[in-house]
Nucleic acid binder design. Structure first.
Lengths: 186, 186
DNA sequence: CAGAATATCTAGCGGCGCTAGAATCGGTGG
DNA sequence: CCACCGATTCTAGCGCCGCTAGATATTCTG
């Protein structure tokens, strides 16, 4: 059965190659430059090979997004460890969005079939959201709604800055105000 | 010169026809369904006619967005009139986003060359933002940054709800929390 | 080593945004 | 009234897209 194992391993390697190449290309030229033809050329296989791994372009982006959910969840959990957890978690979120813009775009901006806040929500995404809830601290009246609002604010800041709709300059100040407004001293 | 006037009037009418048709089609089937071919067929002209009015598809969407800026600015100004201005303005913003999703998408989600917070920012958009600043009330420490943060929160709520990433159910509660957190009693 | 099964490729479909050049229309001067 | 000419509009096509059917090549098996 070693032959099958080797085949599976090679297939898994090619799967990784596709994802990494798609991510690199997207990072360099944006998702609209990630076409099945260019991607196939870069991995040095023909187009249909992509379709033996993924249902289509959207599926490739969804796979990239899934990894992003895990990375984000990890980042938020680490940030939640120290003191001033709320501000740190918010900073970690914005940091992730700023440092991996195309991954963030695949996760939260581009159309998705992914259902949020449902049974099919990926574990990692749920974990990331739970980190937000936890960062708000105990004794909240509406912890989930408040966390959704906090997420909205973070997401809005991320995408409006990314698209140049609000200036990058004020990021620190806005983060300070956000952390202050959402702090638990009310 | 009456003939030229008639021609200009007819051209203006066709311009309107294109914009209205694009908006209707986008509202019915989304922006990705608004192709130059379908649009041309709907207005009963050939494709190149579109290009005699607009530089391209993106330009058509930008024109739709521009009208949206005006409508939003008007809506926010009206909401700012009464009492509880902050909550009312926020509600008006979310209302606009929810009731005209494709216009909102063209304004704030889809790629744009439009520069925000610069000299080229459309007057209407600037007016809408100023309404947010005003709604925060006087005696703020960082009124612009705070307004940018408020806008971020509103935008985040709008798009995350629109894409189903946060449930539509909690909209009212989240709006309440938002208005409370940003109220000037600190 | 022949044949079956698997893996991969070539070639193509319909549709996209956009445009060059042909055809047609409408106003104008003889 | 008509022939011309410029403006307007259309036909046809380019190179690209996501995706797939069917041919081909490769690999494993008896």
């Amino acid at each position: 059965m070693s032959i099958m194992e080797r085949k599976e391993r090679q297939r898994a390697e090619r799967y990784e190659l596709i994802l990494n190449t798609a991510l690199e290309l997207a990072a360099a030229e944006g998702w609209e430059a990630v076409t099945t033809r260019r991607l196939a050329a870069l991995i040095e296989y023909s187009q249909p090979v992509l379709y033996s791994h993924f249902k289509g372009k959207a599926d490739i982006m969804a796979a990239v997004a899934m990894r992003g959910f895990e990375e984000l969840a990890t980042g938020l959990k680490i940030a939640a460890g120290g003191s001033a957890a709320l501000r740190a978690v918010c900073a970690a979120y914005l940091d992730f969005a700023a440092s991996r813009p195309v991954v963030y775009e695949a996760m939260f901006v581009l159309p998705t079939q992914l259902l949020f806040a449902s049974e099919e929500t990926p574990t990692a995404l749920r974990a990331a959201f739970d980190a937000l809830v936890a960062a708000l601290g105990p004794d909240r009246e509406d912890p989930v709604f408040t966390a959704e609002l906090l997420w909205s604010a973070l997401h809005g800041m991320a995408v409006l800055m990314q698209s140049g709709r609000i200036p990058a300059d004020g990021a620190e100040v806005r983060l300070d105000i956000l952390a202050r407004e959402f702090s638990n001293r009310h």
